[in-house]
Design a binder for these strands. Structure first.
Lengths: 346, 346
DNA sequence: TTGTAAGCGTTATCAG
DNA sequence: CTGATAACGCTTACAA
């Protein structure tokens, strides 16, 4: 019996027609009963449900979707750095993916996930292909080609994104200004007097400007003048941090603490300053921004500002569904919190 | 013009019929030309492709799938601990999810992801609903109800899993024995003489037994007698590690190093022994297994055995596709590597 | 090489 | 409240 094996491995194919026969009703009644249509009498519904259970019937979603014209699915595109080891992906993105899936599922949607990193695999025609009703793009602003690609999609596309480099995108984003203010106040409370910001107000990265702005106004609120030590463009973040810290140390500018607009910059600065013999956190305090994984490994581990990824996922989904429904606005700012570790003194 | 806004936000609906008209051919020719059917003449194909491009045509996948009877999709179910914060999920699982998506996409499949944690949301009828052609379940063996649920699905279901507690599941797994041997040899090389295993040979966790077995035979190969310090059942892993270490210290059994069958157990032991004044790694060396995130945070950071998650994702997909094709066997063991950190001496 | 026509299994619109 | 009967948009025999 050679065929038997193959047959055994096939999932049975039961249609609504079979259920109709089993329950002694019409096919459309089956559809309505199972969909919870209120016009079906309770006895009939029960009969149908029982028949469906007996036959182990499950709706063929493809047929249903074809007919309905909706997929009940959201696409999530994870943008990676080209050629980057997946393991090095910021764990925040993974957590965000998880909470996005959870939020989608809470709203009755499935999630189709794809990882994209370069021109060969950029793809966002989920709606046109009727694979999904909308799209969420999660990625680092660094991957410029990716954002160019997604920026040029049909303007009618329903989508939201995390990590977009510019305001022209339908973004959801951390509350960067509040986070920066949190960092500044923390440093002030811990007794640091001269806080310098390592960053840029002209970076294409929207976030960086927002973080600097938050820093600057928190400083002014505290009656202090903001000081910006600019990072050089076109270098790896950690290197930017190193160099900016070196430049700061050599400038003669008095400082006793650093607020860096990203964790990687903070980590670079931390290494540079520790290498120059500064005691951290006693002599110099450092606070980063992002809650990147490596921050926990450093010596001392990095105090940082972290976004609430649970809320982030929920906001992404809410905003996308609102866009799909043609509703104009929902919140796009995700709350942040301070994670105190070892790079600021107790 | 109130309606206009809504219309503008709708993705255009172009069918193969429209393309056929535009190109002056029949609908089936369009389908064949776009699918790369060799029976279509090159000029015709070009005409069709041009017409499709002009109209911005994209295949409606639902219709295609309904007709074909296949979905071109794999489902990935991530099993979480019920009520556990997603952030605390072992980052290995996220990395595994990523590499699984990549491997699936390399084989031309989409990936439908869902996070499930308790009876209310366990669900595995992807094939019956024609939502996916097969399923990959990734999860911690701890979530017993989840494995019970998935174990009771239709035996014809095409699926593979990572983290299954028993051999009865279609598993793919780390090369636990090789990993344990790696750990033992590392400790021997670093000059530890009396290596005790913290674990169990009777745990429902298949992995634990395999790791113990690997430890035991590596010890015998080195002419040493294996010593097992059993963990107590039904406690949190870290607590198991603590207690086992305490019991070991008080037993009078001579030891200078510990191989724990999981990182969390190792971490518990590390804390317990450090608390009792043992110097780590000088007096006592400790090696864990899993590459768990917290291991990098501990003082000293934990030396451990890590699985190659890139290969893991690829193997999961390979094995699933083979099962779907009715082919019997593909490799199910994922290679491991030693990550030397600070809990073993240099 | 291309066209015709028959479904795939639903949901939704009409009647009754 | 329920039953016929059209679509939904594609792929694939079967003809030509």
């Amino acid at each position: 019996m050679p065929q038997t094996t193959d047959t055994a491995r096939r999932i049975t194919r039961v249609t609504s027609f079979d259920v109709a026969e089993e329950a002694g009703v019409s096919q459309s009644t089956v559809s309505r009963a199972l969909a919870g249509d209120t016009s079906i009498s309770e006895p009939t519904r029960q009969r149908v449900i029982a028949a469906a259970a007996r036959l182990n019937y499950q709706v063929n979603e493809n047929a249903a979707r074809l007919r309905r014209g909706k997929t009940g699915t959201l696409a999530v595109v994870m943008i990676c750095r080209a050629g980057q080891d997946r393991k090095d992906l910021n764990p925040f993105y993974f957590a965000l993916l998880g909470s996005t899936c959870a939020a989608a599922s809470a709203r009755g949607y499935e999630v189709l996930v794809s990882f994209q990193d370069s021109a060969e695999n950029f793809w966002g025609h989920y709606e046109e292909r009727r694979k999904a009703d909308g799209m969420i793009v999660i990625g680092t602003s660094e991957n410029t080609p990716a954002w160019e690609y997604f920026g040029q999609l049909d303007p009618a596309t329903n989508w939201v994104c995390w990590g977009a480099p510019s305001d022209a995108f339908p973004w959801v984003r951390s509350d960067n200004e509040a986070g920066a203010a949190l960092a500044v106040r923390h440093m002030l409370v811990r007794g640091y007097e001269r806080i310098v910001c390592l960053g840029s107000e002209t970076s294409p990265q929207r976030q960086f400007k927002e973080r600097y702005d938050g820093y600057a106004s928190a400083m002014r609120d505290a009656g202090r003048e903001p000081v910006l030590q600019r990072i050089e463009r076109g270098l790896p973040r950690e290197e930017q941090g190193r160099r900016a810290a070196a430049a700061l140390a050599e400038s003669g500018q008095p400082f006793d603490s650093i607020f860096a607009v990203s964790d990687e910059i903070a980590l670079g600065a931390l290494k540079e300053l520790a290498g120059r013999g500064y005691g951290i956190p006693d002599q110099i305090g450092i606070v980063g921004f992002d809650g990147v994984r490596a921050g926990a490994w450093s010596t001392p581990p990095l105090t940082t500002i972290e976004s609430d990824f649970e809320t982030a996922g929920a906001l992404l989904v809410e905003r996308l569904l609102a866009a799909m429904a043609g509703e104009p606005e929902t919140p796009r700012r995700v709350p942040v919190r301070l994670v105190v570790r070892g790079s600021t003194r107790p």
